[in-house]
Design a protein around this nucleic acid. Sequence first.
DNA 1: CGCATTCCCTGGGTGC
DNA 2: TGCACCCAGGGAATGC
Length: 279
Amino acid sequence: MPELPEVESVRKYLESKILDSKILDVNIYVKKALRNADVLELSKIKNQKITKLDRIAKHLIIHFEEHYIICHLRMEGKFFIFNNESDMNNLTKRDYDILKITTDKNIILFQDKRKFATVDIFEKDISYIQNKVLKKVGPEPFDIDENELHKKINNKNSDIKKVLLNQEIISGLGNIYVDEVLFASKIHPETKAKFLDLKDCKEIIKNSRSILKEAIKHRGTTIRSYAISLEIEGGYQKFLNVHQKKGEKCPIDGNIIKKIKVGGRGTYFCDICQKLKNS
DNA sequence: CGCATTCCCTGGGTGC
DNA sequence: TGCACCCAGGGAATGC
């Protein structure tokens, strides 16, 4: 599932391929994906150039001269770049199309098998702070310290895993990296957030930063269906310690990794390294 | 308000 | 091989 490192990898990939391209045509295939506007509004990007590729947490942002669009890949959203229509038709199943942008250089195709992906369009003078999608997004782990995190969560009676998945509190972590961060921080995923002290928060921030950075370096994690594009896959799955490792041995103590459900999400952890704190 | 649950959607996996 | 079934999950909506 695309989390911060995967979206960053997509951003870099797109930046290398589509920056400065001029939009010739745009097609939206899943109308519901375009949440805040209609087809007519979207068509305004025609004749504009792509000026910047940006990313806020898991949101990918494509800037044009007068507008920008925010794409969310959810679980299975993917971007592809093709040189021409026939390459595109030969290499992909078009059933999954969400958005297609034809430029003077190539074709940008945004697909999602589950049709959960979203696209929002804004005029460029709407700042990120005013933007109704982005203003709800909390700070990335790089932009928050343990004091702020502690303050935000020390009254929460929710499992810490759920709290860290809440993008309004801290953004960029998804199901894979939360498991890895909690393992590295020696915190049980079902520990109530209010029981975590400043030291725990410091560990969470420190490990979130290092794990995300390392994952970005390896172009993210490829498990199940995630791949940046046709030709690029992430490599961070080699470094996962607990996620998707049910039945395997904990690298620290050899204990068998357990799988439970936390907030409806599959959750992997070592019940020796990660002891539940009850106060 | 805070927290839990439901829903969206469909490919892939399992079991018969 | 084919069919029925269930699971995965980010985030919005709904419920308590």
